[in-house]
Design a protein around this nucleic acid. Structure first.
Length: 564
RNA sequence: UGGGGCGUGGCCAAGCGGUAAGGCGCCGGCCUUUGGAGCCGGUAUUCGAAGGUUCGAAUCCUUCCGCCCCAACCA
């Protein structure tokens, strides 16, 4: 086998990595690779950001470069330190390190301001005193060219004077704006004299009241990249039209650094929404319990739900990087956690909807313990003691009085296995006055201790169970997709309804009085388990001493549920 | 009726002129003290459409069709 054969990349190749590899091979930027992840601190990170993070940090890492964490904090009225803190937590949790490379566009305000004056001196920027409405009107439309502002021909001196006075706080919000002088008739609307600076008498979360003029994204972003020596500035497709402006800003202010912008398609997931505006609305209108509600597609929501950073990174790798608009099936995300947790999560038993089974031939007052492996395929996860006694809880769904042909579980007269315990046979069904099943009677076969029948007899089902005398009560929260429709954005737009009307009323079902095995009594918040035959669960921070709360991350695949 | 991006199986996605990778899903089978996991096999005569170039086209050319983005002093 040649070296090339063994050097298969763990990370799939994509057009971005191809470009970077070619640049490195050609010796561009001295072979250096610097990327950046540039969130605006105006909301929490979501799974779409995770894709960008994996790309930005991934590419940098693979080529021996750096990825800067840069907060694009140029709009003080929308931003907040709460968001910068959460963003840092989330990036770290996802497993990425920016070391000391934590930057803020606001750190560059002075330099950026200087670049703006440079532009003015070159006659490439001017102060416009049109109102916002008038600017919009002068901009033209998609099919009609724009018109020059009457202020477009102001002299350099007048522009400089006005701009300095803007900075000095002489004017109210909206009185003037600094604009690039490019081309009001450009077919690319982005180039119709874009606004570079606006007046905002607002307190900034980092610079306080030091400034009252703030740069726009199209000005701050390319120049921040240049200042930091970024080589490859990766962003999403909606910025393709902005690339000429990105290049323009750098060409006319800086010449040393020459970052290039490349665009890829953002991640979309079905059965959820991804826009920050909509996620904010869900939080503010209390449709969910905060940004980290386990139903949210936010990184913090997925974390609380029980997703692992590994599974999210794996998901991002599998989804790929391309330029085609895409809608990824949330089933792939679920597959990724299942695969990860199947390998790592210790097993335990929990009964979600308990039904008592009394083993009439098991001596009253007697009890015993079984040593049970914590993982069927990984002995290094150890084992634990699980108590057993005369009365146990089984899952209500695991019993049917009149079972259909393909139902293999417990039924009157039928023998099944209690996992790691005994073979038991149902001998009686006890109902209340309303005819509802309230309890089962059965017998166990003492010769089958551990769950094996010495005579080789087979049973068609194995049930999970919890000893009634030792069971701990728990709350278990089951989650379903947040929306009833695959494309809440599109469906809502079509009918004119608000997307919140499509929220799945069953997206959260909190089960109280679940019975869990005693080893789970003090599960640490954030610890993950597979509850056998049911799914993966994660202890929620709402847990308190003796009152555990679990979130279902994802159910196990269930071919019986699918068939029935 | 302007400019830009994109069209490969249900969802993603390789492919870069030599005769359709892979993953998810789905369908079978084996195995199983989780109807889980694991293992094995199947799942596009065809690449938005139509022409053209070529011995040969998903890949090149032409035209057409469809979807998405852009008219914030948001990012």
């Amino acid at each position: 086998m040649s070296d090339a054969d063994t050097a298969a990349p763990a990370q799939p190749q994509d057009f971005i990595r191809e470009i970077v590899a070619a640049d490195v091979a050609a010796g561009k930027n001295g072979g250096r690779v610097v990327t950046r992840f540039p969130p605006e601190p105006n909301g929490y990170l979501h799974i779409g950001h995770a894709k960008a993070i994996c790309l930005d940090f991934g590419v940098a890492g693979e080529f021996g470069g750096y990825c800067n964490l840069r907060f694009d904090d140029t709009n003080p009225v929308k931003e907040d330190v709460e968001y910068v803190d959460s963003i840092k937590d989330d990036v770290k949790w996802l497993g990425f390190e920016w070391h000391e490379r934590e930057y803020y566009a606001s750190d560059y305000y002075e330099q950026l301001y200087g670049f703006a004056e440079t532009l003015i001196r070159k006659g490439l920027a001017y102060v416009d005193s049109l109102s916002a409405d008038d600017i919009r009107e002068h901009r033209g439309t998609l099919t009609e060219p724009g018109k020059d502002s009457p202020y477009r021909t102001r002299s350099v001196d007048e522009n400089l004077d006005l701009f300095r006075r803007m900075r000095g706080g002489e004017f109210p919000d909206g009185a003037h704006v600094l604009r690039a002088k490019i081309d009001m008739r450009s077919p690319n609307i982005t180039l119709r004299d874009p606004v570079l600076y606006r007046i905002r008498h607002a307190e900034h979360h980092r610079t306080g009241n030091a400034w009252c003029v703030y740069p726009m994204y199209d000005f701050a972003h390319p120049l921040s990249d240049a200042i930091e020596g970024v080589t490859h500035s990766l962003c999403t497709l909606e910025y393709v039209d902005h690339r000429p402006l990105y290049d323009w800003a750098i060409e006319h202010t800086r010449t040393e650094a020459r970052p290039r912008q490349y665009e890829f398609a953002r991640l979309n997931l079905n059965y959820t929404v991804m826009s920050k505006r909509k996620l904010l609305q869900l939080v503010e209108q209390k449709h969910v319990n905060g940004w980290d509600d386990p139903r949210m597609p936010t990184v913090s929501g997925l974390r609380r739900r029980g997703y692992t950073p590994e599974s999210i990174r794996d998901f991002c790798a599998r989804v790929g990087v391309a330029k085609k608009e895409n809608v990824i099936d949330v089933g792939l995300l679920e597959h990724c956690v299942r695969e990860d947790l199947n390998r790592r999560a210790p097993r335990a038993m929990a009964v979600l909807r308990p039904l008592k089974l009394v083993l009439t031939n098991y001596p009253e007052g007697q009890s015993e313990e079984f040593a049970v492996a914590n993982h069927p395929d990984n002995a290094s996860l150890g084992s634990r003691r699980v108590p057993f006694s005369r009365e146990i809880y089984i899952e209500r769904d695991d019993f049917m009085e009149d079972p259909p042909k393909k139902f293999f579980r417990l039924a009157p007269g039928r023998e099944v296995r209690l996992r790691n315990a005994y073979l038991v046979t149902c001998t009686g069904v006890i109902k209340n006055a309303a005819g509802e099943i309230v309890e089962l009677r059965g017998t166990y076969d003492p010769a089958t201790r551990g769950g094996d029948a010495p005579d080789g007899r087979k049973v068609k089902a194995t049930l999970h169970w919890v000893s009634a005398a030792n069971a701990i009560d728990a709350e278990i929260r089951l989650y379903d997709r947040l929306f009833t429709t695959e494309d809440p954005d599109g469906s809502a737009a079509k009918t004119g309804a608000d997307f919140t009307s499509l929220i799945n009323p069953q997206s959260l079902e909190a089960l109280k009085g679940c019975k869990i095995e005693p080893s789970l009594a003090n599960a640490a918040s954030g610890s993950r388990y597979q509850f056998e035959r049911q799914g993966y669960f994660c202890a929620d921070p709402d847990s308190s001493a003796g009152k555990p709360v679990f979130n279902r991350t994802v159910s196990l695949k269930d071919s019986w549920a699918k068939a029935s």
